[in-house]
């Protein structure tokens, strides 16, 4: 049974359309990640599920029930906000239990759920503290606990890790992933960070300008992006793009760009010298820093010549940049700036 379904959902703010024809089904227990740049409409989609934004047209269903006209409290969803949204004047315990008290849940049941969430998230010693007495990570856990105690049908996460430092972000990412798998609650997770999207999502939806660009498992998006936006968005360092065209020579197909040519597999037909974009993942390139130009002559169409102008040492993976019109970020060897490479 589908847990959340969007049927041609559209959202307009005044004259501008921020979400256009959003049509998607999120399976029961699935962790779906909405990813995209600023202004792509991902948070708006999430807020429409929460009931915090009205839908201009279309329908949103949760467990087949049309929730489009319902206020947030009647939707049985819980949300974790980017800046946590904890009530500063209440203790952790009060923050966790307020939603339940407003729903007139019996006191014993409230205590049971608060104890369970606090135990699961390691918040038990902090229950009588106020948010300002907690670290960023602890506040994030309280925000998650507040969603958990509600035992909702759907969890909504709106860039929950973007205010944490890199180390804590990685740790919390693992915790969120583990928690979601344990609880098996349908989750929609919004992020602009494609690493978060790749590591957390069962499926990823890539959004740009309010439109779905591609939906699929992380590896599908990485290996078979349907357009240049998805290709460039997914993957770190990002894919290299080179403008050029095809030419056939002695039964072999070459991609010709200004300054180099490279042999490509014969695939979809393309007219000779029709403007095309070649995308190359950085890890599909390697640097030969010997300076031996005979390599290029011996294996035509398999080597690019250029001068490395910048090396970003990321630890295990150095990143080399070449100042070509065809910008590339090859990786794999240990290049040095100022040396010729192929």
């Amino acid at each position: 049974m589908p847990s959340v379904s969007f049927e041609h959902v559209r959202k307009r703010f005044g004259d501008s359309t921020v979400v256009e024809d959003f049509d998607l089904v999120v399976a029961d227990g699935e962790l779906l990640v909405l990813v995209g740049g600023s202004g792509s409409g991902k948070s708006t989609v999430l807020r429409m599920v929460a009931g915090l934004e009205e839908v201009t047209s279309g329908t949103i269903r949760i467990d087949q029930r049309d929730v489009t006209p319902l206020p947030p409290r009647e939707r049985d969803v819980a949300m974790v906000f980017q800046d946590y949204g904890l009530y500063p004047h209440m203790t952790v315990r009060e923050n966790l239990s307020l939603g339940l008290r407003l729903r007139k849940i019996p006191r014993q049941e409230i205590d049971r759920r608060v104890t369970w969430a606090a135990g699961t998230l390691g918040l038990a010693p902090l229950l009588d503290r106020k948010p300002k007495q907690l670290s960023g990570g602890q506040r994030q856990r309280v925000a998650m606990g507040r969603a958990m105690v509600r035992e909702p049908k759907v969890f909504l996460f709106d860039e929950p890790l973007s205010n944490l430092d890199a180390g804590l972000r990685a740790q919390m990412r693992i915790e969120i992933g583990g928690l979601q798998r344990r609880l098996k609650v349908t989750t929609i997770y919004v992020t602009h960070d494609q690493v978060e999207a790749m590591t957390l999502g069962d499926r990823i939806v890539v959004l740009a300008d309010g439109r779905i660009q591609q939906v699929g498992r992380p590896i599908e998006l990485y290996r078979a992006p349907v357009n240049r936006f998805v290709a460039g968005f997914i993957g770190t360092p990002p894919m290299n793009f080179v403008e050029g065209g095809l030419r056939e020579d002695n039964g072999q197909v070459f991609f010709i760009a200004e300054g180099f040519s490279i042999k490509v597999p014969r695939g979809e037909t393309a007219k000779a010298m029709e403007p095309l974009t070649l995308g190359i993942r950085p890890e599909d390139l390697c640097v030969d820093s010997s300076g031996d130009r005979s390599v290029e002559a011996a294996r035509p169409g398999e080597a690019l010549t250029g001068r490395v102008v910048l090396v970003e040492r990321l630890g295990g993976t150095p990143c080399a940049s070449r100042p070509a019109r065809a910008r590339t970020r090859p990786a794999g060897a240990s290049p040095r700036p100022g040396r010729d490479g192929h």
Binding site: L52, G85, Y87
Partner: peptide, 26 residues
């Protein structure tokens, strides 16, 4: 912050309750 209002709405508060329970103490 807007997130406090959003969180209160998700928790099931009416606008009047948000005003007197969340906004007033702050």
């Amino acid at each position: 912050p807007q997130s406090l209002i959003d969180a209160a709405r998700m928790d099931g508060m009416s606008e009047l309750r948000i005003l007197f329970t969340i906004f007033w103490p702050l």
